[in-house]
């Protein structure tokens, strides 16, 4: 398969993709890095000056940073937990024979195709609104006080919304994996006297491990940069209660026009993402080898 000609051709054919991605990484990254050492505000142009580590000091000592860091972890962790547990249970359910499998599949997968701004606004207004939302109506119906989700449990509410969007993804992938499980294996285990719980723990879970890894990897990539859901529901508030890192840096840069501070935040976000990435790549690298 490989001759001088084909190898030369291969280099030529891969270079646009590599060069574009390299440019996409290097140019903005080095600019971010450079800006992070400047005192630079868009409202006061022409006043840029070297600031050393000041931006980092401000960003890293800002209580908002810790709040945002904690919120980011809670958001990613919470959504992963809900979608994976929910996804496994749902996959087990949908893997059973029942009438209307095709239609139920379509119903379950639907939220994945809904854009984040839509799902956030629909949940915020039509379900979680303490006056006119459906939840409020049910609370009143049951004689309870309506709960103001987005004011009193903003992060939890956002986790719920995001989990609703990603549950279908986890379910679909785990269901596909479950269906690829050799039924003879399960039957053999049954002959060996394994009950459902045993079969689940010793055969299904190991079989699903690879798919769960994939779900974690892909969801983490997207969950680390949840943005629109926060923007259209709480704007990060109240206070910093629902601000994640992405939103914090966005607010600093494009709402307060503090390019220097925002860039320092950006660099911090990149470093943190890389730490997460190293773990994930190890995991997926091993898994994709097979």
């Amino acid at each position: 398969m490989a001759t001088q000609h084909s190898r030369a051709a291969a280099r030529l054919m891969i270079s646009p993709a590599v060069l574009l991605l390299l440019g996409w990484m290097i140019i903005p990254l080095s600019m971010t890095l450079y800006f992070s050492f400047l005192r630079y505000n868009l409202l006061i142009p022409g006043m840029e000056e070297w600031a050393g580590w000041t931006n980092y000091e401000f960003f890293l000592t800002d209580p908002a940073f810790f709040a945002a860091l904690k919120n980011t972890l809670l958001l990613v962790g919470g959504v992963l937990l809900i979608t994976i547990i929910g996804g496994v249970l749902l996959a087990l359910l949908l893997d059973q024979p029942f009438w209307g499998q095709g239609i139920v599949r379509i119903l379950v997968i639907a939220p994945f195709f809904v854009m984040p701004t839509v799902s956030a606004l629909v949940w915020k207004n039509m379900f979680m609104n303490p006056v006119n939302g459906l939840f409020a109506y049910f609370a009143k119906f049951l004689g309870l006080e309506p709960f103001d989700f987005l004011s009193h449990a903003p992060l939890f509410s956002i986790i719920l919304i995001v989990a609703w969007q990603w549950l279908p993804f986890a379910t679909l992938i785990l269901l596909t994996a479950l269906q690829s499980l050799d039924s003879e294996q399960l039957e053999a285990a049954e002959m060996d006297g394994a009950n459902f719980l045993n079969r689940f723990v010793f055969i299904m879970v190991p079989h699903l491990a690879r798919s769960i890894t994939v779900v974690i990897l892909i969801q983490t990539i997207f969950l680390l940069s949840v943005f629109a859901e926060i923007l259209v529901t709480t704007n990060g508030g109240p206070g910093y209660a629902s601000t994640n890192l992405t939103y914090l840096i966005y607010a600093q840069s494009l709402l307060q026009f503090d390019v220097g501070g925002g860039s320092a935040g950006g660099v911090v976000a990149i470093i943190l993402a890389n730490i997460v990435a190293i773990f994930l790549m190890r995991m997926i690298g091993k898994n994709l080898e097979a």
Partner: peptide, 16 residues
């Protein structure tokens, strides 16, 4: 490169 948080390069892209 997919792991690169978009917010990390928001400002340069915005300015460019």
């Amino acid at each position: 490169t997919k792991m690169l948080p978009p917010v990390g390069v928001l400002i340069p892209i915005y300015l460019l």
